[in-house]
């Protein structure tokens, strides 16, 4: 059976009139890297919360259907059991940082402390995780003295250090500089190749196409499209439904009308765009 298995999941937050998720069916294999795309309000963060157990355990509300990760069912587990398998990096790092720690090093160790990891192991895991995300030089700074992008790296690191089997990332690079973003994507890809299952919400289509195995497009709480990155990200359905698309895709689509793009498939990445346009240049 799939490592992550969502069956007919419908969920409504308390005091709201419409469901945030509607009849979601999603199966993800262990070690798969799945990207979730969609306009604001499509249910992307809610889906992250559902995978991480916050929906419904923390947010309450009405849920139906089943959510399973690593053969455990969410509704039959408690949140403190669930966090041993699943880690979530929040969209806004300000909301994730504990506020209880004076240094970045301690902040990253916070989760490990809570699950009772021995001191020496904790130290080496924190060191390794900081090296992985390139923030060793921030170790002694206060988490609150950091820039937005640096804070986001700390938030990501404090999840990676937990070594979850399912890593859920809600726009982990939204405040990062462009080359830093690319590096983080490379790191996440490597974790997936080492067997970690990754679900990532992201607006940066170029990098999704390059790094993810599969893309799920959400709209109004439902799955609109699902498939290989290039197929989903070049679909006309996306442009028509307010999804962001890569400049390479939109430019090739326009170029096709003018006879400048002759291939049938549209590009999402730089290499694909070079390949299709090079005969004209």
């Amino acid at each position: 059976m799939a490592f992550v298995n969502l069956q007919n999941v419908t969920y409504q937050y308390p005091l709201t009139k419409t469901p945030a998720l509607q009849n979601i069916n999603l199966q993800i294999n262990e070690g798969e890297f799945v990207a979730i795309v969609g306009p604001n309000g499509a249910g992307k963060s809610t889906l992250c919360y559902a995978l991480a157990g916050f929906v419904p355990h923390f947010f309450k509300g009405e849920i139906s259907g089943t959510i399973e990760v690593a053969d455990k069912e969410s509704s039959k587990s408690t949140l403190d059991e669930w966090v041993l398998n699943v880690g979530l990096a929040f969209q806004n790092p300000f909301n994730q940082i504990s506020g209880a720690k004076y240094t970045v090093f301690e902040e990253i160790a916070f989760g490990l402390e809570n699950i009772g990891v021995p001191r020496e192991e904790m130290k080496s895991r924190v060191e390794d995780a900081m090296a992985l995300t390139g923030i060793r030089d921030l170790a002694d700074r206060s988490p609150y003295s950091l820039s937005g992008g640096q804070q986001q790296r700390v938030a990501l690191t404090s999840i990676l250090v937990m070594q979850p089997r399912l890593l859920v990332l809600d726009e982990p690079t939204s405040q990062m500089d462009p080359i830093g973003t690319r590096e983080v994507f490379g790191t996440i890809r490597k974790m997936a190749e080492d067997g970690m299952t990754v679900v990532l919400v992201e607006h940066k289509m170029e990098w999704i196409a390059q790094f993810a195995d599969r893309v799920v497009a959400l709209k109004d709480g439902s799955v609109l499209l699902e498939g290989k990155p290039n197929e989903v990200l070049t679909s006309t359905l996306l442009a028509e439904n307010g999804f962001g698309i890569s400049r390479y895709t939109s430019t090739a689509r326009e170029g096709k009308k003018q006879g400048l793009w002759k291939k049938e498939n549209l590009p999402v990445t730089l290499d694909e765009a070079v390949e299709g346009f090079k005969h004209n240049a």
Binding site: D177, P178, I179, G180, R182, E206, S246, R247, Y248, T251, L270, A273, V274, F277, K278, N280, A281
Partner: peptide
């Protein structure tokens, strides 16, 4: 720009690669 971790825009990079 790479010194400060910035990539040129997508179409600028594409133009460069195509030798425009």
């Amino acid at each position: 720009l790479a010194q400060t971790y910035v990539d040129p825009p997508q179409l600028t990079r594409l133009g460069k690669r195509l030798g425009l």
